[in-house]
Computed example of a mutant assay.
Amino acid sequence: MAEGHSRPRGWTDRLGGVLALAGGAVLLGVALLTCWSVVQRWLTSRPVPGDFELVSLGSGVAVLGFLAWGTARRASIVVDTFTGWLPRRAAGALDAFWMLVWAAAAALLAERLFQGARETLRSGTTTMVLGFPTWWAVGFGALAFAAVALAALAWVPRLGRGEG
């Protein structure tokens, strides 16, 4: 981020923070479950039933929880090999364009995940071992990508003015 310029703040920034905290909490839960399952397997030769299902769902939810936070802070990898020589305003316009593309891609993913959550809920899809419903994880993905799209859109005007 350029000196003297701060990230866009507001409810989208707070939503990204809440989702990141939720993702972190789920990630901590997944780590504890994994430890518990390993210890139980060592002591009893039997893991926690369905541990791999819960770790899989939890890991996906955790990763999705961090996307909006990273976007709100522009914490993703930025490669400016070809734009470092451009004037600040031109580089900002190019960054704004790509942030808009990211917002559109995230919005499309959010919409598709929302449809997937509806279909998963309607069909009653569950995990194989525990029979745990999966619609909520897909729905969380939809919420996370919607928050990413909003966070990216908050950056577009600033980047277009060369602030960022």
Rank of each mutant, 00 (worst) to 15 (best):
S37V: 06
A104D: 04
A107N: 07
V18D: 03
W42V: 01
V38Y: 13
M99D: 00
G139V: 05
A105W: 14
G23F: 03
F82N: 08
A107W: 12
P47D: 01
T120F: 06
F97K: 04
F97T: 07
F145S: 02
A106Q: 09
Q115R: 08
A151R: 13
G23E: 01
A104M: 08
V129C: 07
A103G: 07
R161F: 06
G23N: 03
A91N: 13
T125M: 04
S59G: 15
T44W: 07
M99F: 01
R112D: 03
I77L: 15
W85L: 14
V78F: 04
G164N: 03
V148K: 01
E3Y: 07
G23K: 05
L32P: 05
E53H: 07
P47E: 02
A152N: 11
T83C: 05
L100P: 00
S56D: 06
A106P: 13
W36N: 09
G84K: 07
W42K: 00
D13I: 01
V39E: 03
A144M: 14
L27K: 00
A22G: 14
W98Y: 14
V61N: 01
E3S: 05
A142K: 12
T126Y: 03
F66V: 12
L113A: 06
L33Q: 07
R161S: 12
A151F: 11
A25V: 11
A62C: 13
T127G: 06
T83F: 09
S123N: 09
P8V: 08
V61S: 05
R88Q: 14
P8G: 05
E3G: 02
F66A: 10
A72E: 05
D51P: 00
V148R: 01
A2Q: 12
V79Y: 06
G60W: 12
L150K: 01
G50A: 06
A20L: 03
T71C: 11
A144R: 15
I77F: 12
A2W: 08
V18T: 14
R7E: 13
A93G: 13
D95W: 02
A106V: 11
R14C: 07
V18L: 15
T44V: 02
T126P: 10
L28H: 01
R158E: 11
V148Y: 02
E163Y: 09
G4H: 11
V148F: 04
G162K: 10
A149D: 04
G162P: 14
A106G: 09
V129H: 15
R112F: 05
T126M: 07
R9C: 00
W11V: 08
G65S: 03
E111W: 14
L153R: 08
G141E: 04
L54M: 11
G16P: 04
P8C: 05
D51V: 14
A106F: 10
W135D: 07
R118E: 09
R74S: 11
W136L: 14
M99V: 00
G141A: 13
G70M: 11
E119I: 12
G10I: 06
T34H: 14
F82E: 12
V156G: 06
L94V: 14
G84Y: 10
R89H: 15
P8F: 05
L86H: 13
A20S: 09
A91I: 04
L150E: 02
F66P: 08
P49F: 10
L64F: 11
V156P: 09
